[in-house]
Design a protein around this nucleic acid. Structure first.
Lengths: 223, 223, 223, 223
DNA sequence: GATGAATGAGCGTTCATTCAT
DNA sequence: AATGAATGAACGCTCATTCAT
C-alpha cells in the first residue's frame, strides 16, 4: 500500500467523481457504494478488490478502469463519505430558531447522523489509522467541511449577542466537542459495550446518552 | 489438509499472560512490545508477521511458538495495551483532594495518558474496526477496567455529599464523556487537523484543548 | 483472519470437470496432467504446488484459479485418473468371444493397464492412505466404475449358461480378485522385488506372472 | 526428504534396534510404537515429528537422540513392522498337517494378519510410494522374510509328493498371490468399499472374502 | 537422558494488478 | 466498457532440525 503503488495516472474517465444522479445505478456508482461498505467494514488493507468487484456484479478490471487502483478507489470512497456527511447541514435552518434550541437541534442532528451512519465513522477511523495520508489528496475536502464551522460561528455570535452564550467559546473547539461526543459513541461502541456491559445501541441507553451529550454541550456554552 | 484449521491454542509457555518485568528483555516480551507498535501503526491486517519478527530480532517461528498465530499475538498485544492503560489509575490518590480538584486531576491525567499513548488509542480503534471481536476473548479485560468506574462512583458520591456535584450524574456516562473527549483528540487528530487547519499536537492548541475538556466536564457535573 | 477458512469452492471455470480434448493444451489441462504425475509420484502431502506450477509452465496462482486449492487439484487429478482407467473397458468387445477367451482377455487387459499405468495405481494407493477421504467428494466416481461390474456379470452369466463357469461365483468378488492380482504387482513391486530378489519388471518375470494371474482366475471360475 | 537429509551418522545409542522386551516401556520403545502409528496413518511426509513426540510424552530431542532424524525413525518403524509381521510364521506348525489343510491354514492366517494389522499394510504402501528407497537400507529385511518362502517351498514339495498339488507351481509366485489377495483387501478397502458399495470390514463380507481367497489359492495349486 | 527455546528454509495461499480480446 | 486469464510478490504459517542447559 505504500511503495507498491506507483502513481496510477488513471487515464480513464474520472468524470469529476460524477455525482450526477444520472449515473446513479451505473457501474461506477455501484462500485463506489460497495467500496464504501467494504472499506468501512474492513479497512484499507482488509478490503478486497475481488470482493468489491464480486458484490458489485462487475469485473475487477472495471475498478481499475474507473479508479486507477485500490488506493484511488479508497480515496473516492472517502471523499464520497464526507460529501454525504456534510449534506446534512443543508437541511438545517438554524436561523429560524433561538440560539439554545438551535444548538440543541444541531447537536442532536449531529449525534443522530453519526449513529445512523456507522460506515462514515468507520471510514474516518480507517483514514486516521492511516494518519490522514489519503484525505490530503482530496482538495475539495476542506471546502466540504468548512460550512460546519461557519454555521457554529454564526450561532455562537448570535447566542452571545442575545446574552445566552458565554462569549469565550471557540467555535472550532465547540465543533470538536460535539464531534467527539457523537463520534465516540459509534466508534468505540464495541469495546465500551463489552467492557462496561452497557449496550450503546439499546434504545433507552441511546436516548439517555443523546440527552446527556446535548446537555453537556449546552452547559458548556451557557452564559 | 485438515489439521491445518485446528484452533491455534498456543500450546506454548504463556507464562501467566503478564510477563513479569524480570522477563523484560525475553524474546516473548520483545515480540509483544514490537507487536503493539506494529498493530497500532498498521492495524491487524496491515501489520506483518515478518516485520514484527525482524524488528524483534527474533525468528518468525518464535511468534507462533509463543502466541500461536497472528490473531493470538494481536489479542495479547491488545490485552497488554489495556493493562498498561489502566495502571495509571494506581497512581491516583483522589481521596486526598476535594471533589472538584480531584475530578480536575482525573480528567487531566486521562487526557494526558491518551495524548502520550497514541499506540493505545490506535489499538482500541483497530479493535473497534473489528467490532470488538477479539477483546471478547480476553476474560480479564472487564476486571482490568472496572476500577475506573469505581473511582468515579466514589468521587461523584463524595461530590454530591459535599454539595458541589449534581446528584443526577451517571458515573458510567461521565466516564464515557471523559474518554470520548480525551480519545477523539488523538484518534481523529489527522483528519481534524487537516480539515480545520488546526494542529492538535501544537503545544498551545493542546493546552487550550486540555483546559476546555476539563472545563466541560466540570461544568457538566457542577451543582 | 476469519474469511480465510471459507470453503474454497473454486469459483472459477470448472468447465464441466471433463476438459474436452479441444482444451488439451490449455493451462487447466496442463496443470491437471502435471498434477497426476506429481501426486502419484509423491502423494498428497509430498507433492508441491510450486513444482506443479513450474512444470506446467504456469503461474502458481492459476492452480488456485482453476482448482481452488491443493486439495481441489488432488481431487481433480484423482477423478481424471479413474476416468482414464475405466475407459479401457470401452475397447473391450467381450461379446464376440466365448466366455473363457473373453475372461482371459479381460484379465490380461486389466493386468496390462495396471502395469502400463503405475501413476494410476499410485493415485489409488495415495487415496487409500487418506482413507478414501477425497474420493467421496467425487459424485461421478461410482458411475464411472459401475460398468466394470456389469461387464463381469454378463460374462459370468454367459459362462454359467454355457456350462463353462461355476454358478456360484460372485462378480464383485471376482472383480476384486482380478484387481488385487493386477494391482499388487505394481503397487508392491518395490518391496517385493527387493525382499525376494525377483525383479517384477523384467520381461520374462512379468510375462510369467501375467499368465499365472490369468490362470488363477480361470481355475477359480471354471466349472 | 530427498536432498535435505544429510547422512545422519546417528552418533547415538542405536542399540541394534533394541528389541529386548526389557526396554518395552522405555522412551525409545514408546517413540517407535507411536511412530509406526503415525507413519502408517499419514505417510512419511504426512507424519509430524512434533506430533510423534507429543503422543510419546517425550521431548522432540529424544527422537533425534535415538533415531538420528525423521528418516531414521521411519526406517526403524518400517523394520519393526516387518519384524512383527514375520513372527506369525513362528506360530505355524504346518508339518503337523496334511498339505491341503496346511495351505488352508497358512492362507487363512496370512489373510487374518493383514486384516488385523492395517498399520503394517499402510507402512508397506507408504514404502512403495517411496519406491522402496528406505527398505533397501535395512540389511536384515531379506533375512526376516526369507523363511516365508522356505515354508511354502516345503509345503509345495510335500503336496506334489503326496500327489495333491500340481508340480508346476512356483512357491514365490504362490506367495505373491497369497500376499496380493490378503493385502488388497486392506490396502484398497476405502476406495473399493466406496466405489462398489460393499463394506469390506463387515463381518459377513469379510468372512466370505476370506473363504474366496482360500478357495482361489487351493484351486490354483490343486493337482 | 531430557528439556525448552531457537532457527531457516520452504510451503500453501492470497491479492493487487495487468493484458489480450 | 467489459471479461477471463495470467502474473509476481508477498504473506501467514509449518516443520525438521539444532543447541544450550
Amino acid at each position: 500500500m505504500t511503495a507498491k503503488i506507483t502513481k496510477p495516472a488513471s487515464k480513464a474517465p474520472r468524470k469529476k467523481a460524477a455525482p450526477a444522479p444520472a449515473d446513479e445505478d451505473g457501474t461506477r456508482s455501484r462500485i463506489l457504494n460497495v467500496a464504501i461498505q467494504e472499506f468501512s467494514r474492513l479497512g484499507l488493507s482488509g478490503a478486497r478488490i475481488d470482493e468489491i468487484a464480486a458484490e458489485t456484479g462487475a469485473n475487477k478490471g472495471m475498478i481499475y478502469y474507473y479508479f486507477g487502483n485500490k488506493e484511488g478507489l479508497y480515496v473516492a470512497a472517502l471523499e464520497e463519505s464526507y460529501t454525504r456527511f456534510r449534506q446534512i447541514e443543508h437541511g438545517f435552518h438554524l436561523d429560524e430558531l433561538p440560539p439554545i434550541p438551535a444548538l440543541r437541534a444541531l447537536v442532536g442532528s449531529t449525534f443522530d447522523y453519526h449513529a445512523q451512519h456507522p460506515e462514515f465513522i468507520r471510514m474516518v477511523m480507517t483514514e486516521n489509522i492511516h494518519n490522514g495520508e489519503y484525505i490530503r489528496k482530496i482538495p475539495t475536502l476542506k471546502a466540504i467541511n468548512k460550512p460546519a464551522i461557519g454555521l457554529l460561528e454564526g450561532l455562537c455570535a448570535r447566542g452571545v449577542e442575545e446574552g445566552v452564550f458565554r462569549p469565550d467559546v471557540d467555535p472550532v473547539d465547540l465543533h470538536m466537542s460535539i464531534s467527539a461526543l457523537s463520534f465516540y459513541n459509534v466508534s468505540n461502541q464495541h469495546t465500551f459495550s463489552f467492557i462496561f456491559g452497557r449496550d450503546l445501541k439499546a434504545a433507552d441507553v441511546h436516548a439517555k446518552r443523546r440527552e446527556a451529550v446535548i446537555d453537556m454541550i449546552l452547559r458548556y456554552v451557557r452564559a
